[in-house]
Write a protein that binds this DNA or RNA. Structure first.
Lengths: 195, 195
DNA sequence: ATTAAATTTGAATAGTGGTTCAATATTCAC
DNA sequence: GTGAATATTGAACCACTATTCAAATTTAAT
């Protein structure tokens, strides 16, 4: 019996994030991913069924982690709705601050993947979004958020805005720090542009 | 001398918008676009240099039109900064309300195109964004917008939010009307979620 | 009607890259 | 050390599609 040499599965995922971040999903060639991961081209296929499953795995990891963390925040009655909304923004920004390539993959590929394979995309994303929606609803119920805000539209707006900012940052990280962007987002989400 | 049969250039662009909206840029096959446009495959290449130029032409049309309209609004001293910000949102929403396929192409393809070909993308987009930035700056100068708002980050946030909402709508137009989404966006951009 | 210039056609081409699989290598149990 | 089971390799395969181009078609001028 032979055993697997090391954590090739993880090496492949990490290589894939890097190659997809640089070239996009269609521009990311399997042989490039294999090369960067330090495995043979064919080995990819003993860990993942095909190219699509690799990017699905990337997003599954991301949203599973974010959902589980947000869930803990959402259930904590000691945290105010405003703080929970900020925690949501922090969670996303902290992850992408740690992994810039992942931020690019998120910003460029997720929407297209959801369009093309709505039923195959990780369910954790929808769970994360749903939890965010619950936080807004709590804020409205407790009288701190504006009840005329439509939570469904807000979630699309907020996620779109986060995505737009992260993407701009990832393309030119020198312009503004993610920390600054994060704080601006909190301001805009809470109070908008008006004084 | 033979003359060109009709407006094949326009037919090709319109077919391309439809096919790209349904299948994404990589999924949009030239022969499909040709078929829908009612021309032979080879004819595409007597109107456009290659596949890439077709989608570039789509975005050039979009942003030229939007920029020119926004420019008129921005220069009008009789319109308040708040109204100008709303006009920006209206312009984008009106165009995409008229052409749902165009909305999908915008939401799914633009970011990736800018990443892959930052220098080839239509300059009208940057001009439009710059004009939007000027509107915010005017609002800050005249004391109606919060001066601690970073206009560069705001523009990314707002465009991302608009894009996210339009995309969600285009994927499921029955959930909310674009008019409702547009009004929510105006509320959120101005006042955020707080009361 | 004839000619010439330009357009249109679509089958053939050529390059690409995801996937396969027969061969090789490695590990463990005995 | 031997054999069996599994992992790994990477060259070859093959499906796919953007692009080309020689032939056919159309139009207008004479």
């Amino acid at each position: 019996m032979r055993v697997r040499e090391g954590n090739k599965e993880k090496a492949i995922i990490e290589a894939a994030i890097k190659v997809i971040a640089e070239n996009g999903y269609y521009g990311a060639k399997i042989h490039k991913i294999a090369e960067l991961a330090g495995v043979a081209t064919g080995s990819i296929y003993s860990y993942y069924e095909n190219k699509l499953q690799i990017i699905f795995a990337i997003f599954d990891n991301v949203w599973k982690e974010l959902y589980e963390k947000l869930e803990l925040v959402e259930q904590d009655a000691a945290i105010s709705p405003s703080q929970k909304l900020e925690a949501l923004i922090d969670l996303v920004f902290n992850l992408f601050t740690e992994n810039q390539d992942l931020a690019l993959v998120f910003a460029h590929e997720q929407n297209v993947l959801i369009r093309d394979y709505p039923d195959k995309f990780t369910p954790y994303f929808e769970k994360f979004i749903q939890t965010g929606q619950n936080i807004i609803s709590q804020g409205i119920a407790s009288g701190v958020f504006n009840p005329s805000v439509n939570v469904f539209i807000l979630r699309k707006y907020l996620m779109g805005g986060i995505s737009g900012c992260i993407q701009a940052w990832a393309l030119d990280p020198s312009s503004y720090s993610l920390a600054e962007i994060r704080d601006q987002l909190k301001l805009l989400a809470h109070k908008g542009v008006n004084i």
